[in-house]
Amino acid sequence: MARPLVLDIDGTMTRPDDSVDPRFFDVLPEWDAPVVLATGKAFPYPVALCHFMYLEQNVIAENGGVVLARGEVTLNGDGEAPRRVAEAYVEAGHDLGWGPADLTNRWRETEIAVARDQPLGPLEELAAEHGLEVVDTGFAYHVKSAGIEKGRGLKSVARLLDRDPAEFVAIGDSENDVSTFGVAGDSYAVANADAKAKRAADVVVEESYSEATLGVLDELRGRE
């Protein structure tokens, strides 16, 4: 029987050019168990990806701040404090780094993301003043409520799906996947993963990016 999956997107389902590997559009809809997309991106991104993949919309977004399963949306974080941090950061002469449209933060509900080419020290100081934390996902610095993480999101999704979190197989590449690895029954880090993710994973795959993830899925199917 197929194991339920919790898959990070960027660096895990994508190719080195950041595009989603089109092979997932064939593989995941045929997976005979729940598939959860878990990301640091704003909520609409994984929801849209599920829609276009014709997948049931099981989503962990904003590093666990927003969860969707069985049509039920759960907010685990409070977006007001991160927005105050962002305002103070800009008032101090810094920039969030995304340009006037700021499509990275436009639809975020529970956190704020700052480009990694912006100063980290002042951001961490402001976050601490508001009782928040900053996590580096490799894509951005995310200002969020302490204790809100993908692993907590997986527990919420598993409860809504009437599954034990230990049934899930997790695949990821970043610091923000470490908590997922700690909750799922089995975990894989792709070769392009950061050091924290590699240390936390049960297995570090030799291949990178989507090639590694597709290889793990082939291996799991072979065990059915």
Rank of each mutant, 00 (worst) to 15 (best):
A2T: 08
A2G: 04
R3P: 01
P4M: 02
P4K: 12
P4H: 09
V6W: 01
V6H: 01
I9P: 07
G11M: 09
G11F: 02
T14Q: 12
P16H: 12
V20R: 10
V20P: 05
P22G: 02
P22K: 03
P22Q: 02
R23S: 05
R23M: 13
L28F: 14
W31Q: 10
D32F: 12
D32K: 12
A33N: 09
A33R: 13
V35A: 13
V35F: 10
V36N: 06
L37T: 02
G40Y: 05
A42F: 03
F43N: 14
P44R: 08
P44Y: 11
Y45N: 14
V47M: 11
A48L: 13
C50P: 05
H51L: 12
H51M: 05
M53N: 02
Y54D: 14
E56A: 15
E56R: 15
E56K: 15
E56S: 14
Q57R: 15
V59Q: 01
A61S: 10
E62K: 01
N63W: 04
G64R: 10
V66S: 11
V67A: 08
V67G: 15
L68R: 08
A69R: 11
V73W: 07
V73Y: 06
T74N: 01
N76F: 03
N76A: 06
E80L: 13
P82F: 10
P82Y: 04
R83F: 12
R84W: 01
V85M: 00
V85K: 02
Y89I: 00
E91A: 07
E91L: 00
H94A: 00
G99H: 12
P100R: 13
A101Y: 15
D102G: 04
T104D: 14
E109W: 10
V114H: 06
D117S: 00
Q118R: 14
P119M: 06
G121M: 08
G121R: 13
P122I: 05
L123W: 06
E124L: 06
L126I: 02
H130N: 08
H130V: 05
G131Q: 14
L132D: 00
L132C: 11
E133F: 04
E133P: 00
V135S: 13
D136H: 09
T137R: 10
G138D: 08
H142E: 07
H142Q: 09
K144M: 11
S145L: 08
S145E: 09
A146R: 15
A146I: 05
A146C: 09
K150G: 02
G151A: 07
R152S: 09
K155I: 03
S156E: 15
V157L: 10
V157F: 10
R159H: 14
L160N: 12
L161F: 06
R163P: 04
E167L: 00
E167D: 06
A170N: 01
A170C: 06
I171S: 10
I171N: 12
D173W: 14
N176P: 11
D177G: 05
S179R: 08
T180A: 01
F181Y: 06
V183F: 14
V183T: 15
A184K: 00
G185T: 03
S187C: 01
Y188G: 01
N192S: 09
K196W: 09
K198D: 04
A200C: 11
D202S: 04
V204T: 10
V204W: 14
E206G: 02
E207V: 07
S208I: 01
Y209S: 13
A212L: 06
T213D: 03
T213A: 15
L214E: 09
L214D: 08
G215D: 08
V216A: 09
V216E: 01
L217E: 15
E219Q: 11
L220Y: 11
